[in-house]
């Protein structure tokens, strides 16, 4: 039996395969299919301090080997999460991580403080990369000074594991990663979606109500892989790789590029079992290549 455990910050994860925020709801939706405690971690749907209705319909457009979304952080707010959802899911036996969003630094801080009170949430993923909100979101993640500012202030009020989710819509993602590492982030997760657009040429209208949206799926994988590789070489903190991972081979590629763990996102829409299949596939890969632990492949990154 190979050892799949990985460590990020002070936290140990049972395996490196995690469900990405915005693609696994609040864990209960996936629990309709299987025992979600088998996952390495579950990154819950993006949460904001107050209720958000999200953007108007249509919010989704299929594109070659991927899709655009413009959900816009629809969620019922922190208090609803804490009072109604958290009590139902807190005993799931894997790490539940809240994806924290804000339109101002004060909102990030206030929400983080509320989540900090929850005993069964051992980490947050600070989302400074949502492309589908008018205020905040990605705006914080596309310049070093603003990324530094939000991470510095959140770090002051949060001692548990702090993961920062990065936007790929930047000139140099390694520079942003170094900036948030410098402010005390325990890990970076990347990439969020790429800003994209689709038009119906017959109707001569945009396909999304917001005109632009976030591109995900295998279409972005080679770019995400390159960015993970660049960031892994630039920082000492663990990197969580995200971007079009559909199967075991994709996951292994991200780990060879330097990711300590990976998140499965859009692939869950096509097959909710994808993360479980990848956990199984990584075990088989390790056996086939003679590694006795998953850290074996991660160490390989030094050779690249």
């Amino acid at each position: 039996m190979v050892d799949l455990k990985v460590k990020i910050g002070n936290l140990e994860f049972k395996n490196p395969v995690m469900a990405a925020s915005g693609t696994c709801g609040f864990a209960e939706e996936l629990a309709d299919f299987y025992d979600v405690s088998e996952l390495g971690a579950i990154f819950l749907k993006g949460t904001t301090l107050r209720n958000r209705a999200g953007n108007d319909y249509p919010r989704m457009a299929e594109t070659p080997s991927g899709m655009l979304n413009a959900v816009g952080l629809q969620n019922k707010g922190a208090d609803y999460f804490i009072e109604t959802i958290y009590p139902r899911i807190k005993d799931i036996d894997t790490h539940l991580i809240v994806n924290v969003n804000g339109s101002t630094i004060d909102e990030y801080i206030e929400l983080t403080e509320k989540i900090n009170e929850l005993g069964k949430i051992p980490a947050i993923e600070l989302n400074i990369s949502c492309p589908n909100v008018k205020e905040g979101g990605m705006a914080f993640g596309i310049s070093c000074p603003s990324a530094e500012a939000v991470v510095r202030e959140v770090r002051k009020v949060y001692d548990k594991t702090l993961i920062v989710k990065l936007s790929p819509n930047v000139t140099d993602i390694a520079e942003i990663a170094r900036a948030v590492e410098g402010q005390g982030a325990d890990s970076v997760s990347l990439v969020n979606t790429f800003l994209g657009m689709a038009i119906d040429s017959e109707k001569r209208t945009p396909l999304l109500s917001t005109i632009t949206g976030g591109l995900s799926g295998p279409a972005i994988k080679p770019i995400a892989l390159r960015m993970v590789w660049q960031v892994a070489r630039a920082v000492k903190i663990p990197v969580i790789g995200i971007g079009g991972i559909m199967n075991t081979q994709d996951a292994i590629e991200f780990m060879l590029a330097g990711a300590t763990a990976i998140q499965v996102g859009t692939a869950i829409f096509k097959d909710p079992f994808t993360p479980l299949k990848i956990i199984q596939g990584i075990q088989e890969y390790l056996n086939r290549h003679g590694f006795d632990s998953v850290s074996g492949i991660i160490i390989n990154k030094l050779q690249m």
């Binding site: 299919f33 749907k45 319909y57 249509p58 989704m60």
Partner: peptide, 22 residues
């Protein structure tokens, strides 16, 4: 039959405005 990506409530793409919100 709104456009949907997942079909099981995680993508939040097929929303319909209702008296209870989206």
């Amino acid at each position: 039959e709104n456009l949907m990506a997942c079909g099981f409530g995680v993508c939040l793409c097929c929303i319909e405005p209702t008296v209870k919100g989206n």
